[in-house]
Nucleic acid binder design. Structure first.
Length: 431
RNA sequence: UCCUCAGUAGCUCAAUUGGCAGAGCGUCCGGCUGUUAACCGGAGGGUUGUAGGUUCGAGUCCUACCUGAGGAGCCA
């Protein structure tokens, strides 16, 4: 009986006959030799078919194989320096499951648009495989971090009756006969759950109907949002830097192989340890003026401004205390200067920009009500949110981290679109 | 929504001043016992994004539209 193994485990079966179920990644031949590159989702291995060693029909079948044909191949595991990866299968038999039709993605170069049209197939390529494996580990690391610190995962709804910040960038849906929106943040609900559990986080898809067409925007992305009762801005800045350091450390520890497939220079990532530099908004602008930025003081930082600021440091930098006027209605004003909000953005180095946005939330009922009115928000849908300030209200803070932005930074890839299996972008809803 | 650039074979791209529609890869056929994006020989493959216009003649120039890429604003 031949043992069936996954390619990842092949090195521990040297000298034994094993069987692999997978797909043909590529093939080449030299006379009476066939070299088949077979992948099975755990790795890729070369299998060698010599005409004299296999049945005539098996050798002929090898000839008929097309890229991505599914097959089961049996052979003896052998160490060989000539084989990619150092191990190969000296084939003794092969069963074809299906001969694939002409596969659109060749091992040669393709344009982004073409590849995105074939995203369902592109996922099979080694580069996409590496990115999505790191994504898997990053998500696990995020959950491990909070779980290990006593946080409770409390899910927040995706169908919501009202906007969290602004209304222009929401996806409207019909909830039977009432209008509803896809969630653009779990924050408001997490504020409720943190008053129940103390420390909570939510992790789920987030929808923003912003007509943004840049390398850092998706219409649908995944966000981790911790929310902590009795925490102030300084507390969550410490939490944020420890969190991001943990994510990077885990990616380096678990994803070395994938990062090297992606050609990522891990040097800059190894420097990502606490503490991260902290800059007030005013200090960030002092720096920007030195560099000749034309962004007026009082405005939010633009993308190029973020790059200028973050390029001054070798680890992520936290810019805090922005003018309240450009930030969310729920942010606690700075007691030292009420025109400023107790908020912070974390900017990733190497030009990647904002990966975290967070703040201390208003806990005073009257002040929050005032802000709701100032922002022309409807009071009734926010009544439950205002209720939280009536029953044992305490200072609390939280932040949101965009998984795809962190992933593209860690992987060193220029655009977030490859960091999610099926990206939803401006004018792309297919496949 | 605005700005810039692009659209030619299945894919990636050439095509000089407006003058015969081309190459590489993939596909198909043949050759080779160590290939690594193999190599060598041969074959097939086209409504040049769409619609109109200028011209003896348009892939090339003009107009509109469609699609894509990069960026801005906004954000994680």
């Amino acid at each position: 009986m031949v043992t069936q193994v996954y390619i990842r485990d092949v090195p521990s079966h040297v000298g034994r006959e094993v069987s692999i179920k997978g797909w043909l990644y590529n093939k080449t031949h030299k006379g009476r030799l066939w070299f088949l590159l077979v992948r099975d989702g755990t790795g890729v291995i070369q299998s060698v078919l010599f005409k004299g060693n296999v049945a005539a029909d098996v050798f002929e079948a090898a000839e008929s194989l097309t890229q991505e044909s599914s097959l089961q191949i049996t052979g003896t595991v052998r160490r060989d320096k000539r084989a990619p990866g150092g191990y190969e299968l000296d084939a003794t038999g092969m069963e074809v499951v299906q001969i694939a039709r002409s596969y659109p993605i060749s091992p040669k170069e393709h344009g982004t648009s073409f590849l995105m049209d074939h995203r369902h197939l592109w996922l099979r390529s080694s580069r996409q495989h590496a990115i999505l494996r790191i994504r898997h580990r990053l998500i696990k690391a995020a959950r491990d971090f909070f779980d290990g610190r006593g946080f409770v995962l409390v899910d927040t709804p995706i169908l919501t009756p009202v906007a969290c910040e602004g209304t222009t960038n929401l996806f409207p849906v019909k909830y039977f006969d009432t209008p509803a929106y896809l969630s653009q943040s779990g924050q408001l609900y997490s504020e409720a759950s943190c008053m129940a559990f103390g420390k909570v986080y939510c992790f789920g898809p987030t929808f923003r109907a912003e007509k943004s067409k840049t390398r850092r925007h998706l219409m649908e992305f995944w966000m981790v949002e911790p929310e902590v009762a009795y925490a102030d801005l300084d507390d969550i800045m410490v939490l944020a830097e420890e969190f991001v350091s943990y994510l990077v450390a885990e990616a380096l520890r678990e994803g070395g192989e994938e990062l090297s497939i992606l050609g990522r220079d891990t040097g800059p990532l190894e420097k990502v340890t606490p503490p991260f530099p902290r800059l007030t908004y005013a200090e960030a602008f002092d720096l920007l003026e030195q560099e000749g930025s034309e962004t007026p003081r009082g405005a939010d930082l633009g993308g190029t401004d973020e790059t200028i600021v973050s390029s001054r440091f070798d680890r992520p930098v936290m810019v805090h205390r922005y003018p309240a006027a450009v930030k969310g209605f729920y942010m606690e004003p700075d007691p030292e200067n009420p025109d400023l909000a107790l908020c912070m953005d974390m900017l990733a180095p190497e030009g990647y920009g904002e990966i975290i946005g967070g703040s201390q939330r208003i806990h005073d009922y009257d002040l929050l009500m005032e802000r709701v009115r100032e922002h022309d928000l409807p009071v009734e849908p926010f009544s439950w949110y205002l209720d939280l300030r009536k029953y044992g209200s305490v200072p609390h803070s939280g932040f949101g981290l965009g998984i795809e932005r962190v992933l593209s930074w860690i992987c060193g890839i220029p655009h977030v679109r490859e960091t999610i299996p099926f990206p939803r972008m401006l004018h792309r809803l297919f496949p």
